[in-house]
Amino acid sequence: MREIRATVQLSNSECCTLTRRVLSALGIPPGADIEIGNALVWLAATDTVPLKFLADLLPELQREPETESLNTLYLIETLDRLAAVAGSLNKACTARVENSKAIALLLPLALARSNLNLCIRLQLPNSRIIIDNGEIWTAEESFWTRDWQDSKEILVVCVSNQLSVDLSFFDKTGLNWHFSQSKLQSLSSRRISIDLESLQILKKKAAESFVPNSDLSRRSGAGAEVDDND
């Protein structure tokens, strides 16, 4: 009899692949799926936000966005916009996020999506973070209130939950932010724990990025045309 586990310890690379596939199945554009996936793995590997939250959030992420929604639903709205690289946010748009699950996705999304035209100001309980042009700033007062050029769209997100973020995992080079792949890899000795049920939910979603099987498909696999018993 094989042991049935309550939780599974995933490797770093398994997590990156899994999150990328889930995000791809959710319609996140190629490239963004990898960046956001890696950021989610970073959050999980640093015990900031467990991977389970992505599974918990799936039903909401798959729902059609509601324009007037707040909190988590606002983020879902934001998710779609950000996934489309900024979208059409109103200038100085402000949102308040209470739901910790929403926060789980907010930071990596903001990191992945911020660019020349979108500045995201993250008001955490104990600090302020400005994510601008792909660069993270732990904001001083003057920077926080500074006037921005007219073309810049600003999303201010006030986070009321406790959220501790270790910014040392990001490389800053000039104006550009890089989520440090090598630093993420340095976490590879840490296994990422997830309960079996959440893992199955994520795997099921990830499988939507694969093509359903068929006889025709089966015949197109390598090795289908010969007898292997030789």
Binding site: F210, V211, S217
Partner: peptide, 13 residues
């Protein structure tokens, strides 16, 4: 593409 059948990589027309 990747098939849902054991994630086998395949080539389709």
């Amino acid at each position: 593409y990747v098939s849902q059948e054991k994630e086998e990589p395949r080539l389709g027309k």
